[in-house]
Design a protein around this nucleic acid. Sequence first.
DNA 1: GGTCAATCATGATCGAAATCATATTGTGTC
DNA 2: GACACAATATGATTTCGATCATGATTGACC
Lengths: 190, 190
Amino acid sequence: MISIMIDLFNRLNSETFVQRTVSKGQLVFHQGDATRYLVYVLSGALVLLRHKSDGEEVIVHTARSGETLAEAALFTDHYHCDCKAAEETELVLLPLAVIRNAMREDQVFAQDFIAHLCHQIISLRTRLELVAITSAKERVFAGLTEGLHTGTIRELAAQVHLTPEATNRSLAQLVKDGRLRKLGRGRYRV
Amino acid sequence: MISIMIDLFNRLNSETFVQRTVSKGQLVFHQGDATRYLVYVLSGALVLLRHKSDGEEVIVHTARSGETLAEAALFTDHYHCDCKAAEETELVLLPLAVIRNAMREDQVFAQDFIAHLCHQIISLRTRLELVAITSAKERVFAGLTEGLHTGTIRELAAQVHLTPEATNRSLAQLVKDGRLRKLGRGRYRV
DNA sequence: GGTCAATCATGATCGAAATCATATTGTGTC
DNA sequence: GACACAATATGATTTCGATCATGATTGACC
């Protein structure tokens, strides 16, 4: 999926888009900035953040490898959120003008971009149903089945919206039930 | 948003697509059926269902007014889920061949369809963050702020993935806190 | 006006996850 | 090899939402 998108973007005017590495905590854009880019994540994670009236940061979305974000930027003049790297992240900045032009003039691009968006919709729906599972054990199992365990237990916990403790206990219980195999400390497999 | 999509679909070969009303419980398509249509919801609600190995039904997604569903059908030969009306629903069946042709040959359609998909992504992300709020009271408040309270308390509860009792108690507490106004039995306002 | 079903609203209880705390382990650095 | 640190793993307690139950209200139907 990622390589399809790379091929897709490579067929655009590749002089104008920028591949970058941003370190953890670094901002990609600020809320209120004029919209210039769609952002595509190669590896790592970006979070979209809003600030509450009391200054607290609220994560509106986490984008991971293979996802675009700030799609709203295609239709608005200013970004509605901050965008920050949750960990060291490799990304591609895609100028909106190039994207819009390609949507108009490159039918293959438009179709493949539609395919990409449809996959994101499907993925988000799957995630929504997962997060709605009330049982921590079943939610963690669904998370592993869905291939969400790629990094640390803390990262898995963040993805399934549980505390690390609840995630750990669920993993331990699933191993005990014979539904998961423990490969080592912090590493589990369906 | 809905009327934009109606205009959009009306510019297609409207002879070929079908507007229908389905009653609650009626199936629109079965898992395994050959994919023929994209489904657009005018009013009511459709659920996508999978069957677990023990025969239990799992709701994979609920589509409401203004949403398309079965986007995966654009890319697969067979539907992966059953689709059933959760209540009396008015919908439009859009032949995939027409959609695919329009994507290729009608650039305005392709762009507007991209806009529609982007809005669904944004909406799903918002909903995902809402469902992940652990406090029932805050989740219900976010739900009302987001305009999810359009029907019964039961329907609101289903949208925010809480039980009707928890939703009711949260609403009562929010009124007591002065954060919501109660307009009548089962009717609340920010 | 009476009946009925569905929804709203509330009460009591229980279990699970969050929270707070602590011990252990693995990795990176010196 | 020693040390520091972060993550994993586990323990104890608290909180809150799910569950089960019941009464009240409302709208549709006859």
